[in-house]
Amino acid sequence: MRPATDQIRAWLDEVPDPEIPVISLVDLGIIRDLAWEDDTLVVTVTPTYSGCPATAVINLEIETALRAHGIERIELRRRLSPAWTTDWISDKGRRKLQGYGIAPPVAGTAGCNLAGDAAPTVVCPHCGSTATRVVSQFGSTPCKAAFRCDDCLEPFDYFKCH
C-alpha cells in the first residue's frame, strides 16, 4: 500500500519541531518533497542551519512517525539548494510562533541581512509594540535572535530572517 503524498504530508504536519515543539516540521518548511520510488518513500529534507543540532533528531522523528503509519521503506535525502529560507514557514506556523512568545520572521525578508541592511521592524509577541531592539543576532538556538521590547521591557526571541 502506498498512501498518497498529501496524506503523508498531513501526518508529518503532526510531527513537532524538536526545539520549537509548537510548530510542525511541515510548518517549518523543511519537507521539500515526498515521492514514491517503487515501494520506497523518498522524503527530501532541507536543513535549516548547517550545524543545527536538531537535524539528526528531525530525521529520526520523520522515520518514527512514518513507520507508525505503516510505511516501512523510507529514504531520507538531504537537499542543500535552494537553501532553506524563513519565507517557507507557513502562515499557520507564524501564528503559532507568535502565540508561543516567539516573534515570527517578518514575511518577505529572506535576504534581509545579506547586504548588512538595518533589521526589519519586529513586533513584540507579548504586547504588540514595535518599539523593539535587537540585543544579539544570535539567540538560544541558531535560528533565533535575542530581542527586547522597550515598552513592556520583556526580552523575547525573534525567529530571525534567513
Binding site: 542551519y49 548547517s50 550545524g51 543545527c52 543540532p53 542543500l80 540585543v135 544579539s136 543576532q137 544570535f138 539567540g139 538560544s140 541558531p142 535575542a146
Partner: peptide, 20 residues
C-alpha cells in the same frame, strides 16, 4: 552571556559547514 551564546552559535555554524 549574550556574547557567550553568539560565539557558540558562530562556532556551531562553522562546524556544520565543516561537515559539508
Amino acid at each position: 552571556l549574550e556574547e557567550d551564546i553568539a560565539l557558540a552559535n558562530v562556532a556551531l555554524d562553522l562546524i556544520g559547514q565543516t561537515q559539508l
